[in-house]
């Protein structure tokens, strides 16, 4: 390398010199040796070199690496499109016309049969229908899963799972609230948008609605996880995600029974009225209209599904709210 020319270099020139870039950006060994020697011979250039190094290494670029799958799929497409065309067998003089006429339909038939077999095999492997069960407003549903585990769905809730895969992985997705009674066996996972609950055999309740995510364990042992962390629950303990999304330390719910909603009883522990109203909307076919200030108030209360009037009565007298009913609309002031 002609090293004399570099004595006139400024930091900008260094930053653009390919071997210099190889040294400072890629740590290339050959380049490193050269530049270290050169620096020893020209100590007066140390500042320019340092600045050049800074310039050449400062830049970062934010970019997305293509995934290996993406690249290999793209290659398959290119590969398929650049496949050498096989020599055409039709009208090839080497094959006698008679035998050709006999063999070709046979071959074609075999090809079709093979293709059908492969298709069937693929379908059998990947045929993986999803089964969904949902409970509507003012409805409750009990569903038996393939292994004898059961799920009780609260109103306006939905679960879905893959029956054919159930033997391999007990995985079920939940939107809303449900109570699970799980038979002993492989791990059982409830996936929700808010987090995951994993158990071996137990009964537990999961509520995953809007921003709220709460899990209570009745028997056995339950592992709850969301992006912020995980908690282990033993019988009688509950956890829920707080406003920051962290799962709070397991706490006892007190005397009120877990998943009392199955008996039409709804308990709220220091919950915003908003949550109470939402449950009312799900249990009775009504809409509740109220102001944001009221919705934010935290309450500890209880209602039963048997009677909407007593629910409203409760709201009026316990929380000093005014309620008026217009058809399906309840206005709370």
């Amino acid at each position: 390398m002609k090293s004399e020319i570099f004595t006139s270099y400024t930091s900008l020139d260094f930053a653009q010199e390919p071997s210099f870039i190889r040294w400072v950006r890629a740590g290339d060994e050959e380049a490193a040796v050269f530049w270290q020697n050169w620096l020893q011979e020209h100590p007066e250039k140390a500042t320019e070199v340092a600045e050049g190094r800074l310039l050449a290494t400062a830049l970062r670029v934010q970019e997305e690496e293509p995934s290996a799958l993406q690249l290999s799929n793209l290659w398959s497409r290119i590969d398929a499109a650049t496949q050498e065309k096989l020599p055409v067998t039709d009208h090839t003089p080497v094959v006698p016309i008679n035998s050709g006429a006999k063999i070709r339909p046979m071959r074609r038939w075999l090809t079709y049969a093979a293709a059908a077999c492969v298709t069937l095999l693929l379908v059998a492997l990947f045929y993986n229908p999803t089964r969904s069960i949902s409970a509507g407003i003012a409805e409750q549903k009990t569903h038996q899963l393939p292994d004898g585990s059961s799920v009780v769905l609260n109103a306006a809730s939905k679960v879905s799972y893959r029956p054919l895969r159930w033997g391999l992985a007990r995985k079920i997705e939940l939107e809303g609230e449900a109570f699970f009674q799980v038979t002993k066996g492989r791990r059982f996972v409830v996936k929700t948008a808010q987090g995951e609950v994993e158990v071996l055999g137990t009964s537990f309740n999961v509520r995953a609605r809007g921003n709220s995510f709460a899990v209570s364990c009745v028997t056995g042992k339950v592992r709850v996880s969301n992006p912020k962390g995980e908690r282990i629950l033993t019988p009688g303990l509950s956890t829920q995600a707080n406003d920051n999304g962290d799962l709070v330390a397991p706490y006892t719910v007190g005397t009120q029974p877990t998943a009392a909603w199955r008996d039409g009883k709804f308990y709220f522990n220091d919950a915003p009225l908003q949550e109470v109203f939402e449950e009312i909307q799900r249990q009775f076919e009504v809409r509740v209209q109220t102001s944001p200030e009221i919705a934010k108030r935290k309450v500890t209360t209880y209602f039963e599904r048997s009677n909407l009037d007593s629910v409203l009565y409760n709201l009026r007298w316990t929380f000093e709210l005014e309620t008026s009913v217009r058809g399906n609309l309840i206005i709370v002031k």
């Binding site: 800074l54 290494t57 400062a58 830049l59 970062r60 670029v61 934010q62 970019e63």
Partner: peptide
């Protein structure tokens, strides 16, 4: 459109 940034160390 290259989204350039400066090395965090700096």
């Amino acid at each position: 459109q290259a989204d350039f940034g400066i090395d965090q160390l700096l």
